[in-house]
C-alpha cells in the first residue's frame, strides 16, 4: 500500500519534472531554506522574547500577532517544497533514519506551535510556563533543522 503510493509519487509528473532538470531540485531546496528561515526565524523571535532575551520593546502577544502571518507563510512554503523533494525519492527518504527523526520532531513542533505555544504568549500565562514553552519550541525546531541536515549524511 505504502510502497505503491511511493512508487506513484516517484513516477508522478512533478517528480519527473524535478528529476529531469538538474537545477530544479536545488531551487526547491533553496525555497525550503527561505521558508524555514521565515517560519523558524519568526518563531525564534517570539521564543527569545518569552525568555526575556531581547525584543523587550514589544509584549510577546503583540510580537506573535505581528509575525504570525509571516510564520504561517514560511510554514506553507516549507510544507509545499518539503513534500515535493520527498516525492522525487520517496522510498529512500522513508527509510532514512534522519528523515524519520525529522518528521517526528516536525509533527511535535507543529502540534506544539498551534496549541501550547499560542497560549504561552498570553499575558496571563505564568512566566515560568511561558519560558518552558519557549525552550521546548526552540529545542523542537532545532531538532527539525538538525534532523533535516543529517538526512544527507545518515
Amino acid at each position: 500500500m505504502l510502497a505503491e503510493f511511493f512508487r506513484w509519487l516517484v513516477n508522478s509528473p512533478w517528480s519527473h519534472v524535478i528529476n529531469g532538470y538538474e537545477w530544479i531540485f536545488p531551487a526547491i531546496q533553496s525555497l525550503h531554506f527561505i521558508g524555514f528561515a521565515l517560519s523558524i526565524g519568526t518563531i525564534a523571535i517570539v521564543d527569545l522574547r518569552l525568555l526575556g532575551l531581547g525584543m523587550r520593546r514589544q509584549a510577546p502577544a503583540e510580537l506573535a500577532a505581528d509575525l504570525a502571518p509571516w510564520t504561517l507563510a514560511g510554514i506553507a512554503v516549507m510544507l509545499i517544497t518539503g513534500p515535493l523533494m520527498f516525492s522525487t525519492d520517496a522510498v529512500a527518504y522513508h527509510f532514512n533514519p534522519s528523515f524519520q527523526f525529522k518528521m517526528l520532531c516536525l509533527m511535535l513542533a507543529l502540534l506544539f506551535h498551534f496549541t501550547l505555544h499560542r497560549r504561552a504568549v498570553h499575558p496571563d500565562t505564568p512566566p515560568i510556563a511561558a519560558k518552558l514553552a519557549a525552550v521546548t519550541s526552540l529545542l523542537l525546531w532545532t531538532a527539525v533543522v538538525g534532523g533535516g541536515r543529517m538526512i544527507a549524511f545518515i
Binding site: 521565515l38 523558524i40 526565524g41 519568526t42 523571535i45 509571516w70 525546531w141
Partner: peptide, 9 residues
Amino acid sequence: ALFGGMLLA
C-alpha cells in the same frame, strides 16, 4: 534561520 528571521522582520 535566526539571523534571517531578524533580518526579514
